[in-house]
Each structure stands twice: as C-alpha cells, then as structure tokens.
Simulated assay, not measured.
Amino acid sequence: MQLLPVNLAYFLEVARAGSVTEAAQGLNVAPSAVSRQIAKLESGLGVALFARHPRGMTPTEAGLRLLAHARRTEAESASLVEELRTGGGAAARSVTVACAEGFARRLVPLAVAALRRERPDVSFRVDVVPRQEATRRVVEGLADIAVTYAMGPQADVRVECAVVVPVTAVVPCGHELAGRERVGLAELCGYPLALASPGTSQRELFDIGVRLEGLSVRAALVCDALAPQYAFVRAGGGVALVGDLGDLDDTGLAHVRVDHPVFRQREAQVQTAAVRRPSWAATRCAELLAEALSRVPGV
C-alpha cells in the first residue's frame, strides 16, 4: 500500500529509472501522466528537480535533496503500514540500543527503566560497543537507537539530541589537583596518565591538543574500559580522563574539568536511522534518552 502523495511517488520512480518512459512503465501509467506530475511538482516548488539529457534525466541539487526526503518518507510509510497491519506486535515492543560504555553505566539503564514503568510489555537489548560501531548498527538496522560520541557530521542517521560533554581528570581525593575546578592540558600532562586507545574519540582529541601545545606525553596506562582506569587511579597510579555524563564514580575520587577547547569538538548524541521510521517503543525510548542527555551539564 502506497502512502506517498502521487507526485512524490512519481518523482521517486523517475529518479530511480532515469527517464519518464521507464518510470511510466514501472508505474503502469502513461508517460504523459508522469510528465504532468513532475511539472506540477517543479512548478509548485519553483525549482528544476531534474536535468534533462538526450538519454535520460538526472536529479539536480534541489532534486537530490528532495530525493533524500522522499526516500525517508517512503521508508517511514512502509514501516508504519507494517506496524498497523501487525497491530504493533512483538517487534514493535522490542528495542535494541547500541551504546558506548560510558552511556551504559547509568544514562541508558535509567531511560530503559523509565519506559518499562510506562509500558511493562516493552523489552530491551543493550549492546555495549565502540562509538563508531554503535552508529553503524543503527544505519544497518541492527539497532534501533545509538547513544554514542561523534565528531563532525554523521551520514545516514538522525541526531535526536547532541550535547558537548566536558572531559574531567580523575584523581584520588588526597591528590594535589583535588578540589580544583579546572586544570590545563599542559599541567595535566605532568602526571602519569591513564588514556583510552588511539582511535577513540577522546584519545584523538587529547592527541590533537597535545600536538597543538607542543607537549610530549607517554601514557602510563592505555585501556578503553572504565573500571580498570578507576582502579588504577584509586591505587595511586596516576590520573585518568573520562567524559562527565553527570554520573561519575566519586567514591574516594575527585573530578577536575580539563580546560582545553579541543574537547568541545566531540558531542554525545542520541541517533536513530535517517531512512527508517522507528517503532513507537523505539521513538519513546529515544525521547527519554534525549531528555536525559539534555540534562547533562555542558561545557
């Protein structure tokens, strides 16, 4: 069943087929009917949507933008039709969230619990994965929602919420930095550091900041998991860097904000697929996650 307006459906078919004649064959209508709908659409928008060539038609820049919108609308319509036909069955009541480790500690479980209080029939799967893997799973349909860090524009996802999260230095309560509100990068690098692996977003930004400042740093510990880093700090091994999502483990520890503009390039994001309509349960879960993330103290 087709929920798209006729002119948008015809536009999509012409973009796919590359010509009015082939689009008409696919739609089982007269070529003149397709031409009229495209002409009405272009007239109404006031822009040319196709460049006409002897061997066919290709979308203009405006046409490509409309094409992306039409594809999203088509995918969402198909998802809605299926959901209506199945009565919002088991698939609509199951939500998969892919998230980076920091979000799995508190933010994601609290949103899951909140939705479960609203709708006990909804079930969840939470996969803790690297940041880029979380986005990939949403794009490929392996997860409904990603909660992850991102730097720069993200293709094929809809960003429901984005917040620049401060980076803090974690030190024992008796440490000389404890009680400070901020610490500069140069001063921080004078201490033994526990850092994430190269290639992670925080490490990438840290390495950029170090190069900008002309500093030389050798990590005392390289580890992506948070628990070993906290244990390292508690044992007096050095200082760790973590994102401040408002739920930091502070038992015997102090957190000092790292003051450097390079860390403002990274956002914590709630992402959904750009070309698929999420189920009602996934939509509500994304709303709760966005609300929770928006409450995180920003830079």
Rank of each mutant, 00 (worst) to 15 (best):
L3K: 08
L3Q: 10
P5R: 05
N7D: 15
L12C: 09
E13V: 05
E13T: 13
A17N: 02
G18I: 00
T21C: 03
A30E: 15
V34F: 00
E42N: 02
S43I: 00
L45V: 04
A51D: 14
R52K: 15
H53Y: 11
P54C: 03
G56E: 02
L64Y: 00
R65G: 10
A78P: 00
G87Y: 03
A91Y: 08
A92T: 09
R93E: 12
A104Q: 07
L115N: 03
E118L: 13
D121P: 00
S123Y: 01
D127H: 13
R131P: 06
R131C: 14
T135Y: 06
V139W: 11
E140L: 15
L142M: 12
A143N: 10
D144L: 07
A146D: 06
T148P: 02
T148F: 05
A150C: 04
A150Q: 06
G152F: 04
Q154G: 03
A155P: 12
D156L: 15
V157M: 02
V159C: 10
E160R: 15
E160H: 07
A162M: 01
V163Y: 01
V164F: 00
T168I: 07
E176P: 12
E181G: 08
V183L: 05
G184Y: 01
E187C: 01
C189D: 06
Y191F: 14
Y191N: 01
L195G: 03
T200S: 15
E204P: 00
G214L: 10
L215M: 06
R218M: 10
A219F: 03
D224W: 00
A225C: 10
V233L: 03
G236M: 07
G243K: 09
G243N: 14
G243R: 13
G246N: 08
D247E: 11
D249K: 01
V256H: 03
D259A: 13
H260P: 09
H260E: 08
F263V: 04
R264C: 12
E267A: 10
Q271Y: 08
W280D: 14
L293Y: 02
P297C: 09
